[in-house]
């Protein structure tokens, strides 16, 4: 029973990291119907911005929430600028081109970031600075909740609520929803569609950066290809929950995290990834639009 509870805590913690990245995929898809494959590499860049800014701020060995939030803030700003630039240079010129062209460009941008990363940061894994000290915040018998797990979970849900608020209750969000619903018509209503799409990339990239920092503190090994597998899983999570749907992305990510955890914990750890993708296939067989991806659901 204790092991079961511990597995749940581990799974939720893993799932909330997938969720942060999945949100970025789902937002861009909701508005542009574009799978932004470069998203997981923006996440990697976020981790590296965190790595260098911690050095620059000289907080590499000064753990605490002050260091954590300042590094998080710098990484989110840095990645927002990167996301904006990617959209402006790579995707906007292809706005009128067929969807497949943009998709191939996304793969190109992804590979560009990965291999530029290998040149700039080096292919050797780096050790992420110690910006937050781990400790046990709660124990139930033998079950432990660590400060990292709690921080990750709270940060993810806080960011998700902020995102939800922006989309449902602000003018920007209204414009996003309108663009998602019908771009050309939104434009006729006086919405600057290009600006809204830029904003989508800015927000999505900031979330990816947060993911990068959270993964960095929990698993202090960062490298230029760190986004490949986690990006793939976050993407699966987004599809699982119904791509384009924000709550769906979080739900999908939590299911992925828990499923992986239980397969490894109670079954064969060798089948971890196979099962993750197996789940995707089964759910899509029964619910092609994903768990929450009904056509009537508002897409953003």
């Amino acid at each position: 029973m204790e092991a079961f509870l511990q597995h749940i805590i581990n799974g939720v913690s893993l799932g909330s990291i997938y969720a942060l990245i999945a949100l970025g995929y789902t937002m861009v898809y909701g508005i542009l119907q574009l799978i932004n494959f470069a998203h997981s590499d923006v996440y990697m860049i976020g981790a590296f911005i965190g790595f260098y800014s911690a050095r620059w701020l000289n907080v590499s060995d000064a753990p605490g929430y002050g260091s954590f939030f300042s590094v998080l803030f710098i990484a989110m700003i840095g990645c927002s600028i990167l996301g904006f630039t990617i959209e402006r240079l790579a995707y906007r010129p292809l706005r009128k081109a067929p969807k497949l062209n943009a998709l191939i460009t996304a793969i190109g941008v992804s590979l560009f970031l990965e291999y530029s990363g290998q040149i700039v940061f080096g292919a050797t894994p780096q050790v992420f600075p110690n910006i937050l000290e781990d400790s046990i915040v709660a124990t139930f018998g033998e079950v432990r909740v660590t400060k990292f797990d709690a921080t990750i979970l709270i940060t993810t849900f806080a960011l998700m609520l902020i995102l939800r608020h922006i989309i449902q209750h602000t003018k920007l969000g209204k414009a996003m929803r309108a663009t998602s619903f019908n771009g050309p018509w939104a434009s006729l209503m006086g919405i600057n569609v290009d600006r809204i799409i830029s904003m989508t990339f800015v927000i999505g990239s900031a979330l990816a950066a947060a993911g990068g920092i959270l993964v960095g503190i929990k698993y202090p090994k960062i490298e230029p290809l760190m986004g490949v597998m986690i990006g793939l899983k976050a993407f699966v999570a987004a599809v699982l929950g119904g791509i384009g749907n924000i709550a769906g992305a979080v739900l999908g990510a939590l299911i992925m995290g828990l499923a992986e955890e239980f397969v490894v914990g109670y079954g064969a750890s060798t089948y971890r990834d196979a099962l993750a993708f197996g789940i995707l296939i089964i759910i899509l067989l029964f619910k092609p639009a994903g768990l929450l991806g009904k056509f009537t659901v508002e897409k953003v």
């Binding site: 511990q6 597995h7 698993y219 490894v264």
Partner: peptide
């Protein structure tokens, strides 16, 4: 990067 599932099983 995540080994907690295996380790939780080992712990039991």
């Amino acid at each position: 990067i995540d080994f907690k599932a295996q380790l939780t099983s080992i712990k039991t």
